[in-house]
């Protein structure tokens, strides 16, 4: 019998929210993931590790759903999550997906495009997360991002 939603781990919520078999976005799981990550002290750190792993999935639909979770949480989960996403520890994982030197040659095009889009939106929406701007500028300089 499945544990009641309240006690389910962040991992089970992200697995349900990014399941490649989902016919459409699982907004309830996405919402629950956002709420739960904010409740635990280590929530933002664990959430970014889980998201990085999903975003690096070779399965396009799984990675795109993970990016939707990331975008939703960046809009709803507040400062603690922003500062965790705004660390190179997480940004480097996104960079690996778009960079040909790492996963870029195998990663799905749609996923790479979405990563660049969300990073760009954060440079506008979160100007005080300066590392995001640094990472984005570096990608532009290296020609990984062609605007």
């Amino acid at each position: 019998m499945a544990a009641p939603p309240e006690e389910e781990s962040l991992e089970s919520h992200i697995n349900r929210a990014t399941n490649p078999l989902n016919r459409e976005l699982e907004w309830e799981s996405i919402q629950t993931f956002c709420e739960k990550l904010n409740k635990d002290l280590e929530g933002p750190q664990l959430a970014t590790r889980l998201l990085a792993h999903k975003i690096q999935s070779p399965q396009e639909w799984e990675a795109l759903q993970a990016l939707t979770v990331l975008e939703t949480c960046m809009k709803n989960c507040g400062k603690r999550f922003h500062s965790e996403v705004g660390k190179f520890r997480f940004l480097n994982e996104l960079i690996k997906v778009v960079s040909p030197k790492y996963l870029g040659t195998r990663a799905p095009e749609k996923v790479k495009l979405k990563i660049v889009e969300v990073m760009y939106s954060w440079t506008i929406g979160l100007p005080d997360e300066t590392k995001i701007a640094d990472a984005y500028q570096m990608l532009k300089k290296q020609g990984v991002v062609k605007m």
């Binding site: 002290l41 750190q45 660390k87 520890r89 960079s99 790492y102 640094d134 990608l139």
Partner: peptide, 15 residues
Amino acid sequence: ATSFPDDSDEDLLKV
């Protein structure tokens, strides 16, 4: 006791 959130980080990946 609430531990202070860890704000250690890595360097930016060079591509």
